[in-house]
Design a binder for these strands. Structure first.
Lengths: 132, 132
DNA sequence: CTGCTTGCAAAACATTTGCAATCCC
DNA sequence: GGGATTGCAAATGTTTTGCAAGCAG
C-alpha cells in the first residue's frame, strides 16, 4: 500500500468548503457556526448549516481551524496558523477579540506529575469601544 | 459593574436545592449537570434534570457557582468561593482538575483601552495518573 | 391558605446523520 | 461513470418552559 500522501479522510475541494475556509481566513475574531454560514452563503447561496458543520469538523480535524469556548457562549471557530494568541470576552457587547500576546511560563502552576503541553486563556472585561 | 445580576429572585430553601448545592460543595472537580443530578438523586430520589438546571442557574446567578467551559466538552459546574483557581484538562482521560494557583498579572497582555476584570485559564496535557 | 417549587412532558435549540440528487474528477 | 458532497429533513442530544400538583412558610 504505497502511501505517497497521508490521506486521513478523502476530501474533494468544493465551493462550499472554500467559502467556509475563506470566511475563517478573513475573520479578525472567532465566529459562530451560524455567523460563518451567513457569511459563506453570500458566495454560495442556499448553503446548508449541516454543510458548514461538516466543513468545520474537517477543518478542525485537519488542524486548519480551532474551537474557542467561552463560558455562557456558543462555541466559536477561528482559523489556526496565525500564531499563538488568546482571547478577550467583552461583558458588555459579548464579542470575543483576539489578544496577540501570551504570558509565557504558565505550566509552572500545574500540580506535580501533571505534564502540560498547551493552554487557553480568556480575559474578561470591557472592550475599548464599550469602555469609552 | 459586576456580572449580570437581574433582581433578587424570591427563593425558598428546599431539599432539591440543598442537595444540588451540597453536591457542588463536596465535589473536588467540576461536574456536568447530569453528574450532579445522579449524585443529588441519591438524597432526593426522583429528582428531575429540569430542577437541577433551575437550581444551577440560581446558584450561578447568586454567585454561588461557576460555569467551567472547555472546548469539546459539555459545560461543567463548580461551587465558587473556594478561592481563585484554574483548570487542567487531561487529554487522555478527559477529566478536568482544579489548579490551586494563578499566574497573576495577566491583564498586562490586553490591548490598550481594554479594561480587564477577570480571566479564565485552562491548561492541557496529561494528568499525573495518565502520564505514569 | 398563598404562591414558590417540582416533576413530567412538550418545546426550543443546537448539532449530527440518513439519503437521494448533484457535482467533481 | 463512480464516488464524494450537498441540502433537506429526520434524528439526537441538551437545555428551557408550560402546567397541574405538591410543599414551605
Amino acid at each position: 500500500m504505497p502511501a505517497r500522501r497521508p490521506i486521513p479522510v478523502p476530501t474533494r475541494p468544493t465551493r462550499q468548503r472554500a467559502a467556509v475556509h475563506d470566511v475563517l481566513a478573513g475573520a479578525s475574531r472567532p465566529l459562530t457556526p451560524d455567523e460563518i454560514r451567513a457569511a459563506a452563503a453570500r458566495r454560495v447561496p442556499g448553503l446548508g448549516i449541516a454543510t458548514v458543520y461538516r466543513a468545520l469538523r474537517q477543518l478542525v480535524d485537519a488542524g486548519a481551524a480551532l474551537v474557542v469556548a467561552v463560558p455562557g457562549s456558543a462555541p466559536r471557530y477561528e482559523r489556526s496558523g496565525r500564531g499563538h494568541h488568546h482571547h478577550f470576552h467583552c461583558r458588555a457587547c459579548g464579542r470575543v477579540f483576539e489578544v496577540d500576546d501570551c504570558p509565557r511560563d504558565l505550566a509552572r502552576i500545574a500540580p506535580p506529575g501533571f505534564r502540560v503541553d498547551g493552554h487557553d486563556l480568556v480575559l474578561y472585561g470591557t472592550c475599548a469601544t464599550c469602555d469609552a
